[in-house]
Amino acid sequence: MSAPQTAPDTAALRSTRFRAEREPGWRRLESILERAERQGMRALSFEEARDLARLYREAVSALSVAREISLDAALRDYLEALCARACLAVYAPQETLSGLAGRFLRGVPPAMRRSAPHLGLVLLVTFLGALVGWLLYFQDANWYYTLVPSGGGDPRGPDSPVGQLREVLEGEHDGPLDGLAAFASFLFSHNARIAIFCFSLGALAGVPTLLLCLYNGLSLGAFVALHADRGLGAEVAGWLSIHGVTEIGAILVAAAAGLRLGEAVLFPGPFTRGDALRRQGRDAVKLALLAAMMLVVAALLEGFGRQLITDMHTRLAIGWGIGALWAGWFLLGGRGGRA
């Protein structure tokens, strides 16, 4: 062995000197981290914030040197932990609630515009479903029972007399608890569940999403056909419009979001499927949140608006007016500034 031997007892090890020189810096970084993690970055003074960034970079550089020159496992483990904690503190999310809401609201319309093809597809499928449902009803009214889910205690069906149908459409409920109950039951009603499934099952290649849209269209078509058959076409249009424009819109938006996830799985393009999911997820999550928001608005309309306003023309005006507001926002919003 040709390496010259220097006895370890005369000079400290190189890695020991390395550690002794830097240890005060690490200790200070540790104490700053403690405060940052416990009280948040805002609690740091100017000097501390400045030192945090500087000491973090020093520690990272020390880690990469220590991996090369030091065989002290305890030191390496400590530096790994210190760098990990400091990195997460330095690159912590810097969000405020208002900034978050603002960015979401500015980001939604462009995301909607980018999803226009998907939206068109789900709209087409739903429309086809509605058409088939309508035709099926007029072929044989019993299809109604197959196509329209029988909600608990909903008396409407092909056997119901016209008067009963009209009563449900125009019925007035009063009392704040009734409105609240309708609001709550709506949120967990059939349609809200369809919206949730449309989105979350989209990752399974989008097939369940499209099937759900078709099915939703079928029941809608049969439902309208039943009322049109009894000469209540205009009334059911008003009854549906007041919340339905927003509600069916929400289902379509959720389905479009699901389709974008499905697209990532089916056609990842030049990316891996995971990366493609992540990229499509950026817009899909915005759309899902938007759908949730629209469902809440629809629930408010259903819970209160529909009970308080019974005039057909007002119902139509409110329903489509709000629909036009949504459309205007999606088409025009978020054009200025960064998307």
């Binding site: 020991t16 932990a81 990752a203």
Partner: peptide, 20 residues
């Protein structure tokens, strides 16, 4: 979908250097 992962918060413990 989010590109995240859940990890253990590493404890900060600097043990004395035996060689030193």
């Amino acid at each position: 979908i989010a590109g995240t992962c859940v990890v253990v918060q590493p404890p900060l413990r600097l043990l004395p250097d035996i060689a030193a």
